[in-house]
């Protein structure tokens, strides 16, 4: 499978990376090169093989339902949450107006 220019632009749009035609055109052969190369995986007989889920056998640990048990993963830290915000606004993050 190889991609064409409209596909490159569509992927860029899906990935939210602004890209003009020249940039997309430059990326096109690189992507096709890489995609062509990874396609050799198609040769591998994977019948009956499950996709990898956990590389090291381990089961999912669950957390107790306790609020702010660990300050590093708890709430009540608005100053920290907003410390790096490009546009903090009265305790909110400001973004360009969204019309729903």
């Amino acid at each position: 499978m190889s991609v064409d220019l409209p596909t490159v632009k569509k992927i860029a749009s899906l990935a939210r990376i602004a890209m003009d035609d020249a940039e997309a055109a430059a990326l096109l052969p690189e992507l096709n090169n890489i995609l062509g190369w990874v396609e050799q995986l198609g040769e591998v007989d994977v019948s009956g093989v499950e996709p990898m889920t956990a590389v090291i056998p381990n089961t999912l640990r669950l957390r107790d339902d306790v609020v702010d048990a660990d300050p590093l993963t708890g709430g009540g830290v608005r100053d920290k949450i907003l410390a790096n915000a490009p546009e903090p606004q009265h305790g909110f993050f400001g973004v360009p107006k969204v019309i729903e």
């Binding site: 992927i11 198609g42 996709p51 990898m52």
Partner: peptide, 22 residues
Amino acid sequence: MIGTYVLSAGFYDAYYTQAQKV
């Protein structure tokens, strides 16, 4: 871009699932 493409509709199994099986 590569990652977005291989996860996108219609290509997920051919690329991502295949890679995880490999």
